[in-house]
């Protein structure tokens, strides 16, 4: 395939990885542990949206050239709220206790793995092992100059990523809550010494991290399909993006996501596409060897 065409697909996939990675890096920075349930949070978001879009029979009449209807809006809202709340609840029942006990970040990471396994099992119990699509309709690709193809849905994915990034920027740099999140990420002990209720900041971080992940999940399902393990297999590219960009740095995570996505797609020009899942791993190892604190440095 044309390199430019691969670049376009890479950008789209990279946007999705990047958006998910922004959520992952936020919780990593504030909570300090690697959330191994993040991929499954993503799957939860997909299926919550799927419930609205297909099961409830909304969103059948498409808007313009897109494959989805207005049903996508309540679907996105439900997914954001659902995943955000789920993240907050699991923290409340599991990680908060471990934190109070003074458990290390490794214990918390293992706990997140357990939560991920449970979530994955429950999703499979409800929706089974088959793959679904949001819509059955064909999303006709637009032809750009140079015979490049891009689907309207894919333009929507990139636009939504951009929108989320701007929103996150405004939150982190223009609001007191966002600044307190950055402060807690820098040094949570000092944040509480300064009078910030870090428990509340953690809750807000889970909510925002979960929300971003939910949106990324919906975009991934739109681009391909949804299955009980779709998010889990997406965990490695997201972690690679987080480490590439430096832990706790959302802009780094977005850029890292784009790098991973584009490299993954471009690699198919030279190697068997079956090796695609290995590309994030190779990037990760190269990064760990030469710049373990990420391109922009990490906050922890």
């Amino acid at each position: 395939m044309d390199i430019l065409q691969l670049l376009i697909i890479g950008t789209i996939v990279g946007s999705i990885i990047g958006l998910g990675a922004m959520g992952l890096t936020l919780s990593y920075g504030v909570m300090k542990f690697a959330n191994f349930a993040h991929g499954d949070f993503m799957t939860l978001g997909m299926f919550l949206a799927y419930v609205v879009i297909s099961d409830l029979g909304w969103g059948t009449s498409p808007i313009g050239n897109f494959s989805f209807g207005f049903g996508l809006i309540p679907a996105i809202i439900l997914a954001i709220l659902g995943v955000g709340c789920f993240a907050i609840i699991t923290d409340h029942f599991v990680h908060r206790h471990l934190r109070l006990r003074g458990s290390g970040i490794i214990t918390m990471a293992i706990a997140s793995l357990g939560i991920g396994i449970m979530l994955r099992a429950v999703i499979q119990m409800i929706w089974g092992p088959t793959a679904f699509r949001f819509t059955t309709g064909i999303n006709t690709a637009l032809t750009l100059p140079g015979d490049l193809k891009i689907k309207p849905d894919q333009i929507f994915i990139c636009a939504l990523t951009l929108l989320c990034t701007i929103g996150l920027y405004l939150l982190l740099y223009r609001t007191q809550l966002g600044k307190a999140m950055r402060a807690t990420s820098d040094n949570s002990e000092l944040a509480s010494i300064a009078g910030i209720d870090t428990d509340r900041i953690r809750m807000a971080t889970w909510g925002i991290s979960g929300g971003l992940t939910a949106i990324a999940g919906i975009m991934l399902a739109m681009q391909s399909q949804l299955r009980f393990d779709t998010g889990f297999t997406f965990l490695l590219p997201m972690f690679a993006a987080v480490i590439l960009g430096g832990i706790g740095n959302p802009w780094g995570a977005l850029l890292g996501g784009l790098i991973v996505g584009i490299t993954q797609e471009l690699s198919t020009e030279w190697i068997n596409p079956g090796f695609k899942p290995g590309v994030p791993f190779v990037l990760l190892i190269v990064m760990l060897l030469f710049r373990p604190r990420g391109i922009f440095g990490s906050s922890i």
Partner: peptide
């Protein structure tokens, strides 16, 4: 220490795909 966990999850993926 958690980097090793992330990397090892990746190793399993890559070995399976090879």
């Amino acid at each position: 220490r958690d980097f090793l966990a992330i990397a090892t999850i990746g190793v399993a993926t890559i070995i399976r795909s090879i």
